[in-house]
């Protein structure tokens, strides 16, 4: 069984891991669509975090960016990690533990919201194969990285104020009774 101090150190680690996963999603793609004509690849469209569309002749009328809210979530997670480390100096969570929990919760909401929007957009993109035979869309790794970041941030939220040390003995209790 972990001591409360150790649990808050774990919370700080989870917040850092979530921030790393969130940062990673900024370097990954949402999906890649390939357009073929008579077996020959004509165009490749890859969606990235800034909303840009990459690839040979890559053009898309609509774009979806997730860099802004993800960067904000990473900043909040950094704050949550610092708060959790400061809260780990004693067995009681105190105000630093509360601050760490709320920052991590805000980051969880941000990452979950980003994941939800990215997924519903990607589902629409992937359905492009039904337009005709020459279109194939594959999921990129960014939604997975965002989902992992959201889960880690949630774990950091749940552990930021977990437990306080049990009182094992009270000095003078025997004399009083």
């Amino acid at each position: 069984m972990l001591r409360p101090v150790r649990v808050r150190q774990v919370s700080a680690g989870l917040a850092v891991a979530a921030a790393v996963a969130g940062l990673l999603s900024l370097a990954l793609s949402l999906d890649t669509t390939r357009f073929f004509y008579e077996g020959e690849e004509l165009e490749v469209v890859t969606r990235i975090a800034s909303g840009e569309v990459l690839g040979e002749g890559g053009f898309s009328l609509d774009t979806l960016a997730w860099a802004g809210p993800t960067v904000l979530a990473v900043v909040l997670l950094g704050g949550a990690a610092v708060g959790a480390v400061l809260a780990a100096r004693s067995d009681r969570p105190g105000p630093w533990g509360a601050a760490a929990q709320q920052l991590a919760a805000g980051a969880t909401g941000l990452l979950a919201g980003v994941t939800g929007v990215v997924v519903v957009f990607g589902v629409s993109d992937v359905s492009a194969y039904r337009v005709g035979e020459g279109v194939v869309t594959r999921w990129g790794p960014a939604p997975l990285a965002l989902a992992i970041a959201a889960v880690l941030a949630l774990a950091a939220t749940l552990t930021a104020r977990r437990g306080s040390a049990t009182v094992l003995a009270t000095i003078g209790a025997g004399e009083a009774s």
């Binding site: 997730w66 809210p69 909040l76 805000g106 909401g109 941000l110 990452l111 979950a112 929007v117």
Partner: peptide, 18 residues
Amino acid sequence: AAMAAAAAGGALAVGWMV
């Protein structure tokens, strides 16, 4: 407080992206 912070974060993310 944690639930409210998460809700505000979710609203921010969805509103921002849409």
